[in-house]
């Protein structure tokens, strides 16, 4: 009791933006998983940047095909004798770039279209929703392939093209959520506070729908990667490995596509290693997404600190008190 009171006093003693930021970060750390996810994604980024300089040059050596993991080839080799670790590390940069740009573009467009439609309503809503219907109706992969063929195969272009054709779902979702927020006392009070449409959209509607958008974003990353893999394979001039390298604009999932079938005849590493890296990346993103939801929502309870033990140690050393109750 007294401990809680003291820490409450600490809590109240500092206020303003600093306090809000600190509380937000603590909500993010609430159950540790977001921190693990963040660390893992950061690690993947480092590997993606540093890896190509550290791993061996990608080569094809038919005499070393389908070797199981060993010290020379920690992830084993594929059907053309390519070192799987090299392939995965080199695919990682493209994976992150395609996934994040593609999902960011599609969610950004969808969010703007949907929220404008939902907040403004009326004629604007009707026009934007017909536009969304159109975007829904186009065969996304084929149009994306056309865009990539014209602009050239690269990670940026692949992410961009898929983002440009897959925003319709997000727009629908954002509009629906905005509509559900729009009619209510909350928005009435925003109007009474003299808020313009823009003010209401950004300060009242956006925070309410943000958590859904974050979840959508993470799933969109997975979906964009999956689609981009299909896109590369749909390329008429698709060659699995050109000079031992994955084709430009591809991601590590292509390794799975190239060799995953080999697991049927006992080359299990060809299946499990690419899949493991990919799935763990998506899961880490999901955890970060959960953390972001908590971070953005001030009503989330503060941490039960089973993960972050350091503030307790700091308190024991006579540092700032910790609010155990949250």
């Amino acid at each position: 009791m007294s401990f809680a009171a003291i820490s409450d006093w600490h809590e109240r003693a500092s206020h303003g933006r600093k306090r809000r930021r600190r509380l937000a970060w603590r909500r993010f750390c609430r159950n540790g998983l977001p921190v693990i996810g963040l660390a893992y994604i950061a690690l993947l980024f480092i590997v993606a940047i540093v890896g190509p300089f550290v791993t061996r040059q990608p080569t094809v050596n038919i005499f070393q095909a389908n070797q199981s993991p060993s010290w020379a080839h920690p992830f084993g080799t594929g059907q053309y004798g390519q070192d799987l670790l090299t392939q995965i590390v080199r695919g990682l940069g493209g994976t992150l770039l395609i996934g994040v740009t593609g999902a960011a573009i599609s969610v950004a467009i969808g969010l703007i279209v949907g929220m404008v439609a939902g907040v403004f309503g009326g004629f604007i809503d009707a026009v934007l929703m017909r536009l969304t219907d159109f975007a829904f109706s186009i065969p996304t992969l084929i149009i994306a392939l056309f865009i990539v063929v014209v602009t050239g195969f690269s990670a940026w272009n692949v992410g961009l093209s898929i983002g440009l054709v897959t925003w319709a779902g997000c727009a629908r979702l954002a509009r629906g959520l905005a509509l559900s927020v729009r009619n209510g006392t909350l928005i009435d009070s925003a109007i009474l506070a003299g808020g313009s449409r823009w003010y209401i959209a950004t300060r009242y509607v956006l925070p309410q729908i943000a958590s859904n958008m974050i979840v959508f974003f993470v799933f969109q990353v997975a979906s964009v990667l999956f689609q981009s893999t299909t896109l590369i394979a749909l390329d008429p001039q698709y060659v699995p490995l050109t000079g031992g390298q994955l084709p430009p604009g591809s991601n590590l999932l292509l390794n799975l596509l190239n060799g995953g079938g080999g697991s049927y005849i006992g080359y299990r590493w060809l299946f499990w290693f690419p899949l493991g890296v990919y799935c763990s990346m998506v899961i880490a993103l999901l955890w970060i997404g959960d953390g972001l939801q908590a971070l953005l929502n001030p009503q989330q309870p503060l941490p039960r600190r089973w993960f972050a033990a350091w503030p307790r140690l700091r308190a024991a050393r006579g540092g700032k008190g910790v609010n155990m109750h949250g």
Partner: peptide, 20 residues
Amino acid sequence: RGKDIGVVFQNLAEGFNPYL
């Protein structure tokens, strides 16, 4: 509205933006 005519709502839960 809001400037020359103020409003006090009944619904306390929804009267304020939970994010600000």
